[in-house]
Computed example of a mutant assay.
Amino acid sequence: MAGEIPDLEVEARAGTGKGAARTARRNGMVPGVVYGGGADPLPIQIPFNALLKRLKAGRFMSTLQNMKMEGQDDVRVICRNVQRDVVKDLPTHVDFMRLRRTTKINLYIPVEVVGEEVSPGLKKGGVLSMIRPEVELVVTAGDIPDHITIDISELEIGENVSISSVNLPAGAKPTIDRDFVIANISAPSGLKSQDDDAEDDAPEEVEVIGEEKEGDEE
């Protein structure tokens, strides 16, 4: 199961409609609504600065949130829409969807690496490059993994680990249909430079045309 799910502090919003939304904005709040999960829509509001900070951090719409509101039970939600001012590009309204345990959602799951201490490629001086330190997966809300694991214990220089070689948690699958690389081991920069220099120093082959041999003259 997922470990740390970020809390999202919200407040109940009195009334609905444009008038209530304008009042919320004047008070430094962003109006919103929570819907789905077999319950009635719930009007809410979020402090503008807190929401803007989350949006700037990135992946707000693909991050599971633990919504906390006074007088209500905590509920897991995911953002489904952020309306923005067309001129200032600042949030003016936000929609959240309640999640049931069986709900399928897209989330970025961190990648954990094992086998680094015995990897032959690393022992030879290779460099591990994480192409995707996180992988976007379709997962079930009630069974979200902390991470996925890749094993590089047998990886040589020039080899990689792709998503097809990873044992994904039950019910999870990548959002990308094609096979893609998660990490690879590349040659150290010093070795690459030596190889390049060796190619530069290699003697050029010169074709000799019309060379006469002794004894051929009449």
Score class of each variant (00 low, 15 high):
32 G>Q: 02
42 L>R: 12
44 I>A: 04
82 V>M: 02
28 G>Y: 05
31 P>Y: 06
77 V>F: 00
88 K>P: 00
31 P>N: 05
29 M>R: 13
66 N>R: 15
40 D>H: 12
86 V>Y: 04
84 R>M: 11
32 G>P: 06
88 K>S: 13
87 V>A: 10
47 P>F: 01
56 K>D: 08
62 S>R: 14
74 D>C: 07
90 L>G: 03
91 P>G: 02
52 L>H: 07
53 K>Q: 11
62 S>G: 02
59 R>M: 07
56 K>N: 10
45 Q>F: 01
37 G>A: 06
51 L>Q: 07
75 V>C: 04
50 A>S: 15
29 M>Q: 14
56 K>F: 04
29 M>S: 03
55 L>V: 07
39 A>C: 01
65 Q>S: 09
37 G>C: 08
68 K>S: 13
70 E>D: 12
34 V>E: 08
66 N>D: 14
88 K>M: 08
98 R>I: 06
74 D>E: 15
87 V>S: 08
44 I>S: 03
46 I>S: 03
76 R>L: 13
74 D>W: 06
41 P>L: 03
89 D>H: 11
42 L>S: 10
88 K>F: 08
52 L>S: 11
51 L>W: 06
83 Q>E: 09
63 T>C: 03
89 D>Q: 14
93 H>L: 03
86 V>M: 07
87 V>Y: 13
41 P>M: 02
37 G>M: 06
66 N>K: 15
70 E>G: 04
81 N>S: 14
61 M>Q: 12
72 Q>V: 07
43 P>S: 02
85 D>R: 03
84 R>Q: 11
93 H>W: 07
65 Q>V: 07
61 M>S: 09
31 P>S: 03
44 I>M: 03
69 M>A: 09
45 Q>E: 10
91 P>Q: 01
48 F>Y: 14
88 K>L: 10
87 V>L: 15
68 K>R: 15
54 R>K: 15
88 K>A: 12
82 V>W: 06
95 D>R: 11
